[in-house]
Structure formats: C-alpha cells, structure tokens
Design a protein around this nucleic acid. Structure first.
Length: 581
DNA sequence: GCCGTTTTCGGCCCGACTGTTTTCAGTCG
C-alpha cells in the first residue's frame, strides 16, 4: 500500500468519526496524520518495521503507528472496520455536497436510512427531509441544486487555467477607480497544481468600509458572471460558465496582510500558526494579530509583520503546508527558494520542423526577450510519426540550421543543437548513436506504448539511460494530471539510476505535461539527482509556462543550487551534464 | 489521538454565514 492510499484511508476514517460524533480533537489527529503521511517522500511500507522512523513524523504517535502498521499488513484497521459496521462508505460522498456536514449525514441516515446521493435525492423529492429538524424548503432546494452541480462537475481546475481566469477577472475589477491591488489567494497562490475555486483579495481606497458598497456592486455586475451565489458587505461569490467558483473579497488596506495570510492557507498551516500565536498571548484572525489581554493590534497590514511578530521569518506561500516550514522559519533555516530570474536557460523546445509552431529564430528571440542566456532546440525523432519526427538525415540537417541561427544571434543568446529521442522497446533509441553524437542536448523520453506493465516500462527507461549520449531523461514519470493517463513506472528506481549515471531528470514546467510533482522533486534531490527544468514549449508564448514549473520547485523547497539550468552560461551548464562519450 | 520553553494531564484555532430559529447548531473556509 502506498502513502497516498494510507492517507486516504486515514482521512476517510476521520470523516466516519465525524459522522459518529467522536471527539473533535481525535478527528483532527486523524486528519493531521493523513496530511503528514501524504507529504512523506519515503514510502511508509519500506520503513514499516522501524517504528522509530514512523514516530519521528510529526502527527504520528503510538496509536497512529498501530493504525498504519495495521493498514500495511491487513489493508484495513480495526477502527475503520468498526465504523463501517455502523455506517456505509457511500456516506463519505454525501459530505461533498454543499450544506451536508457530518451531523446532517448522520441525521438522514438515522432517520431515513439514506446513505448515498441517489437516496438523498429521492428522499428530498419525496418531501421526507422537511420533516427533520433544522431542514426547511430552502435547504432542500439548495441541496437538490447541489446534487445537480455535483453530478455535472465535481472536478478541480488546472493551475494555468485558474490563473488565466484570475488575470481576466482582476483586469475587470481594476477598472473600478480606487482599486490598487488584487492578489489571488488560496491554493493558486500556494502553487498547487490544481485549484478547487478562486479566492481574489482586493484592496485600495475604494475598499474602505464607508465606501466599499459601490465596489461590491461593480464586482457583482461583472459581465462574465454566470451565476451570482452571494453578495455580502465586502464579499461577492459567483461562478463562471465553466462552473469555476470565484470568491472576491474587498478589504481595507489596514488588514490586507492578515486577510492575505488567512485566505492563502493552507488550513493546517493556519491552525499551526494560531497555536503559536496563543502560546505567545496573541490571537490571529483574518482581521489582525491581536494581544489577547487588551485586544491591541500587533500586526495586520502585511504578512511579513504578522510572521515577524510571531518570531518567524517570512514564509513564502508555496511552503505553507504545515510541512516543517514553521520550525524552519523559527530557526532561520528556511531555504533561499529558487525564483524565475535564477533560470538562465531552457533545454527542451520544439519548432515547426516537427510539431512546434514557430521557427528556431522565433524561439530564440522569444527566449532572449524573456532574459534567457541559452536554449536547446530539441525536436522530435522519427518514431513519433504523428509529429513529423526527424529521421537521422533530417535531424542532422536540422542541427546544421540550428548552428546557423546560433551564429546569426551573434552571442546574444546561445542555441544548442539537440533532439528529443523516443525510447523504444528494450530501451533502444530511435536514432543512430552517430547522429546523437552531434547533439549537445539529448533528451530521451517515453512517449507512446503507455499501456505496458510497470516492470517492462521501468526496464526500458533504465536501459535507455545507459546509452552514453543521453543527457536528460524527459517525462520521467508520465504522471497523471487531471485526466491524462499516466504510464506506470517505478519512479524511485528510475531516479536512483539517473543519479548513479549522472543523467539529469527533467522537470517539465508545462502544467499540461508536468511529470514530477513536489514530492517527486524532493525524492530526486534526496537521491542526488541532477535536475533541470524545461518548458517543452511548442510555441513562443509557451516559454512563459516556466513560472508554473518554478512554483513546483519552490513547493519542493529547492534552491538555485539544486537546478542545473541556473548555470550562467551554456558552457558551464554543459560541464554539469553527463560528459559526452 | 497528539503533544510538551508553564503541562505525562489537560489542553487542542477563528469568525461569518445560513436556515431555522425565539438563542443557536451546523457548515464553511
């Protein structure tokens, strides 16, 4: 059983305990343990017989240790089984409906024997629910609509799509006079790969309490609103046509920092932060950090003030997951996280020669405009026929052209000749070694034949790494992001082998093609892998997707020193890569 | 169920909103 499954079972147990009206603090312990397990880079299954290592994880104590060991050996645990005697697993689905919390789920179960969505819908339509306490017409109407929405669309949105919506809406809100600043908070600000909804925090003179109502009206009347959900004193909630929910909050400047801190989360980070505040005789809310004894404001206008008042260094949003960042901030040992400006080159991109849209020259100029010092052109090889992949003859002609354009750029930016070769069965590559020998950058990637067994795929990649011309492993995990089917591969083995052979592993910055997540990246660092970050751009504007990849590196606590293409020049970079044979 | 710079026992985060209420429980972020 892997960590994700353990975490899911612990979290489900927490939900079942809630339905069972158990001690809220016990419930929290299960949730906290689930989050902690999810954040581990080492698989718990591999350290199950060493209790010390498990107990060292914050949030895992004696009881949780026993639970985890039971899960690993039997696939379940006594408490979970006990609860499932009383309740049904489908009741967990009910908790996802708006307005349905643990108490209500327990109520409909005990009074109507309803345990799933279909049953709940039927009971609501038959009028059984209005007989229950605290349930009236309004509740039932909202519930039926909630069920409809849930069936239609219960998915999350990829970060780049959410960012685009955030940008569009921000521009529209900014048109109102007296708005200075709009910041997306929540998981978008923390850089999660997907977001459930959009939180936009707005401030400026127009947001002061005495005048804010006009700005609220402006927001509530935005043309792109599909359904207006709520309009309060300083908050507007609505959905877009694609069902993305947007919460806009208009806040006075004086408490903007507290609000930003609060609405950025994560929830667990905030809980831990408030516990810290209490220990210092303070209390933290979305309005301010206050002294408990006399309610005097200690900090509110900026996040930095708040963290500093709690004896912490400023914590970047990407680290706010309650994964050790508070301890590091207290000890002044937070890493100097990598920024976009640290990236000097991009070693994976395509041109019109295969499935890209723009020319070598256009890609180079676009990269130059974005401040890069070097790039590699790595078009596809022949096995990817659908991309018009290059055979040996065309590949050699292409790098000749790349060298010409490199000369035309007169040293303003270096363009390295490269190729993205396809890994075939048995780990063979689809171009001759003599061709690869001409390339500075050889990215070897698994593209097709995704449905092979894990062992076969892993063997393939491990063999391909042995080809001495391969300098970068592309798509190292083939991971699933919102719907794209992954290919199964033993990531741990592949990363270890890449580290041993000195092959760099690629973090694909594009959210659509992201292969490594923050946990994979931490694992790669642990194994001593060389790591590069590339956009895999198929058009000039896709070079901007570097920002999303950087966010993932930051979430993994990585610094410029952990990434190869922070090297200042193409020459120093090439020295860091596996030496050419 | 976890945890310890007041504690191995007694704590454990905060406020708004909603629908249904004559004072609040439950949900949500």
């Amino acid at each position: 059983m892997d960590n994700i499954s353990i975490a899911r079972l612990l979290d489900e147990t927490a939900s079942l305990l809630e339905i069972d009206s158990a001690d809220p603090f016990r419930i929290r312990s299960y949730r906290r343990a689930a989050e902690a397990v999810e954040q581990q880079t080492t698989q718990l299954a591999t350290i199950a017989d060493d209790p010390k290592q498990l107990l060292a994880i914050a949030g895992i104590g004696k009881g949780m240790l026993a639970n985890i060991q039971a899960l690993l050996t039997t696939g379940t645990m006594p408490l979970r089984e006990e609860l499932l005697q009383k309740y049904k697993p489908t009741m967990l689905e009910l908790l996802r409906l708006p307005g349905m919390g643990p108490k209500t789920v327990a109520l409909v179960w005990s009074s109507c024997q309803v345990c799933d969505i279909d049953g709940l819908e039927a009971a609501a339509k038959a009028g059984h629910l209005t007989k229950l306490p605290r349930m009236g017409e309004k509740f039932v109407t909202k519930l039926l609509k909630g069920i409809e929405d849930h069936r239609k669309n219960s998915s999350r949105f990829r970060i780049d799509k959410a960012q685009q919506h955030a940008d569009t809406i921000s521009d529209l809100i900014c048109a109102f006079p007296g708005i200075d600043e709009i910041t997306p908070a929540g998981s978008l600000r923390r850089g999660r790969e997907t977001v459930g909804d959009l939180d936009l925090l707005v401030t400026g003179p127009a947001c002061e309490p005495d005048v804010v109502s006009a700005a609220v009206e402006h927001v509530a009347a935005l043309p792109l609103i599909d359904k207006l959900i709520a309009k309060g004193q300083n908050k507007v909630s609505f959905t877009l046509r694609n069902n993305l929910q947007v919460d806009v909050r208009l806040l006075p400047r004086a408490s903007y920092g507290a609000a930003l801190q609060y609405f950025t989360g994560s929830k667990m980070h905030n809980v831990a932060l408030r516990q810290r505040a209490i220990k210092r005789g303070l209390t933290l809310s979305e309005y301010a950090l206050l002294r408990l004894e006399d309610n005097v404001i200690v900090a509110a206008a900026s996040e930095a003030e708040i963290y500093n008042a709690l004896d912490l260094d400023y914590i970047p949003p990407e680290l706010r997951e309650n994964g050790g960042e508070l301890e590091a901030a207290a000890n002044h040992t937070l890493p100097q996280l990598i920024t976009r400006a640290d990236i000097r080159g991009d070693l994976h991109m395509h041109t019109e020669a295969t499935d890209g849209r723009d020319t070598i020259r256009q890609m180079a100029e676009a990269a130059l405009a974005r401040g890069l010092s070097y790039i590699a052109i790595t078009d596809h090889s022949k096995n990817l026929a659908m991309t018009n992949g290059l055979d040996d003859t065309r590949a050699l002609a292409h790098i000749k052209r790349i060298r010409e354009v490199d000369a035309e750029m007169e040293g303003k930016i270096r363009i390295l000749p490269g190729i993205e070769v396809d890994i075939l069965a048995e780990g063979a590559l689809d171009l001759d070694d003599s061709t690869l020998a001409q390339m500075d950058i050889v990215v070897a990637s698994v593209h097709s034949h995704f449905n092979q067994p894990t062992e076969e795929m892993t063997t393939r990649v491990l063999r391909a790494l042995e080809n001495p011309h391969v300098r970068i492993l592309g798509h190292p995990t083939g991971r699933k992001v919102l719907g794209r089917e992954p290919y199964a591969i033993n990531v741990d083995a592949v990363l270890k082998q890449a580290a041993k052979l000195g092959v760099a592993v690629e973090h694909n910055a594009s959210p659509a093609r992201a292969d490594l997540n923050d946990l994979h990246l931490r694992l790669a660092k642990q194994h001593g892998c060389k790591i590069v970050i590339n956009t895999d751009a198929h058009a000039t504007e896709e070079l901007d997707q570097m920002r999303y990849g950087i966010t993932q590196l930051r979430r993994a606590w990585l610094t410029p020193a952990d990434i190869l293409n922070t090297q200042p020049t193409a020459e120093t970079l090439l020295k860091q890569l596996r030496p050419k044979p």
